[in-house]
């Protein structure tokens, strides 16, 4: 009882001290000290956040081995130009607010790693469609924002693209499609039933309105994917 009241008094004293005027510190000293503390805190916070964007950090979990293996077989890992897109380039937004939101939402990955939701190849395959659908949904809703960090229709020179690719990109512009509408399996293997799942996502989001053009696109998506795999 005495201990608890001592503790309370200590907290009260600390509270009173915290809100008392600093008689021994000048305004300049307080401002400079606060400014420096702010720089140290913000710099440290930002640096830590950037550390979680490295490939080493992403694949440090055992469950990321399957995705890593698949990604290493793709053009985003190895290509003629030597430019590489790592995990965070496609999965973490660049804008501050969206980035912080993505980092908070990623807490679920730690939880699933801890409880072993995808700890075996069988469990992984079982959840592959669900995991892929979550990413597609996010990308469709954001108009493939993360793809557009590097790729933009405006920057494409259709005259040096393969004829079919140029035609499909032109059609995508004309019909308001987004990158993920065709490039779902660009970095990871596609699960069975992905087309039906993607159709559901498109319908749920309602953008762009699905019509004949989209049906045509999905019928063609296997063809496009075979071309990309080559």
């Amino acid at each position: 009882m005495a201990n608890s009241s001592d503790k309370q008094n200590r907290l009260q004293r600390l509270w009173t001290w915290f809100w008392s005027p600093a008689a021994v510190l000048s305004v300049g000293f307080t401002l400079i000290a606060g400014f420096l503390a702010g720089i140290l805190f913000w710099g440290g916070f930002h640096w830590s956040l950037e550390m979680t964007n490295t490939e080493e950090f992403c694949v440090s979990c055992h469950t990321m081995e399957t995705n890593l293996g698949e990604y290493r077989e793709t053009v985003h890992y190895n290509n003629h130009s030597g430019v590489r897109a790592i995990c965070s380039d496609c999965h973490v937004p660049k804008e501050w607010q969206h980035k912080v939101q993505a980092k908070i939402v990623a807490v679920k990955d730690v939880y699933h790693e801890a409880i072993g939701s995808i700890s075996t190849p069988e469990k992984y395959e079982e959840r592959r469609l669900k995991m892929a659908a979550a990413v597609w949904k996010k990308m469709k809703a954001s108009d493939s924002r993360e793809c557009r960090n590097c790729h933009e229709f405006e920057y494409m020179d259709f005259t040096i693209q393969e004829r079919r690719a140029a035609a499909e990109h032109q059609r995508a512009i004309d019909t308001g499609m987004t990158c993920i509408d065709c490039h779902q399996g660009i970095a990871h293997s596609l699960p069975t039933g992905y087309q039906e799942e993607y159709q559901k996502i498109s319908e749920a989001l309602g953008v762009p309105k699905l019509g004949e053009e989209m049906t045509f696109s999905e019928a063609k998506s296997d063809e496009i994917r075979t071309y990309l795999d080559q």
Binding site: V100, V105, K108
Partner: peptide, 10 residues
């Protein structure tokens, strides 16, 4: 989690 993320980001 999306809502929590949005709150934290704001």
């Amino acid at each position: 989690l999306q809502i929590l993320g949005m709150i934290g980001a704001n």
